[in-house]
């Protein structure tokens, strides 16, 4: 029997005559998935709560977690849902519009070098423009309503989508393009049957980045001008020094972002499992 055999056997089987020490039990419990992050999170909350109480930090500077919890009750559920829906509606409309624009644009960019050279610098300029700075200008130009907010969301989400999808479309193995050409297949089938599927992993990494950016875009737009939405609620609460309410709004925003991100991840896992690196079963 070799060394590795014995060590493997002892870790796999629980033998009564050599029961685990308390330290070993603890070590195993800590290594269970989710235990460490959850413990860290609880610890942070405890330190936060204790600091607020011990140092008597005013709640308009930093509300204690228990006060933030109370902040959730400041408005009723229907009002919360209204805010969530307002932000979600803008973020999703902007996101899908962005996808609808960036997919055809990526295909055109990947096909024509002239077009790519003509348009790409403009895309970089748009990306280099801080969205927070341009948001007021867009709101003034497009007035109130969802439209300017959707445009702002679009602006912030579409650059990663275009760049990543174009890269994916170009990353197709040249052999498959040669195969396509030797079959004398029409170009649209080269795009739909080879290039686009090959771009799926790239597309999804951009979709994951952009879904969180979409929330940021919607919130930024609400900061500038809105009468509803989580961004509006956070700003309104801070202006009234109801910081615990702002924190509550922030937590809802984070949860919304996380849920949307997980939905995109789940879509990829379910419909495109082959596109996940190292997740091939």
């Amino acid at each position: 029997m070799t060394m590795s055999d014995t060590s493997e056997a002892s870790s796999l089987s629980v033998r009564p005559e050599r029961s685990e020490t308390r330290r070993q039990v603890m070590a195993r419990a800590i290594r269970a998935p989710g235990v460490l992050p959850a413990a860290t999170f609880v610890l942070i909350l405890l330190v936060w709560e204790a600091s607020c109480r011990v140092f008597a930090i005013p709640s308009f500077i930093l509300p204690a977690p228990t006060r933030v919890l109370g902040g959730f009750g400041a408005v009723d559920t229907a009002r919360w849902l209204e805010h969530v829906w307002a932000t979600l509606r803008v973020a999703m409309t902007g996101y899908f519009l962005s996808i609808a624009i960036s997919l055809p644009l990526s295909i055109m960019l990947s096909r024509s070098e002239i077009l790519s050279r003509a348009i790409y610098p403009i895309l970089v300029v748009i990306q280099a423009t801080p969205v927070v700075a341009i948001a007021p200008v867009i709101i003034v130009a497009l007035g109130s309503g969802d439209l300017p907010r959707v445009v702002i969301t679009c602006l912030i989400t579409f650059f990663p989508l275009v760049v990543s999808t174009t890269t994916g479309l170009m990353a197709t193995p040249p052999e498959l393009i040669e195969l396509s050409r030797s079959l004398r297949a029409p170009v649209f089938r080269e795009i739909t049957q080879i290039r686009l599927p090959y771009a799926v992993p790239y597309l999804f990494s951009a979709l994951k980045i952009s879904i969180t950016l979409a929330i940021i875009g919607a919130v930024v737009a609400e900061f500038v001008a809105a009468e509803k939405g989580l961004g509006y609620y956070i700003q309104f609460s801070t202006s009234m020094f109801q910081v615990q309410q702002a924190w509550a709004g922030l937590i809802v925003l984070v949860l919304l972002s996380l849920i949307l991100f997980q939905i995109v991840t789940a879509i990829q896992r379910f419909w495109f499992p082959w596109s996940l690196p190292g997740d091939r079963t």
């Binding site: 052999e175 040669e178 195969l179 079959l183 599927p197 082959w274 596109s275």
Partner: peptide
């Protein structure tokens, strides 16, 4: 020509 079959150095199959 489509009456010629080509086998590449890498299999280059469609992963999906």
């Amino acid at each position: 020509r489509d009456d010629i079959g080509i086998v590449f150095q890498k299999p280059t199959l469609l992963p999906w």
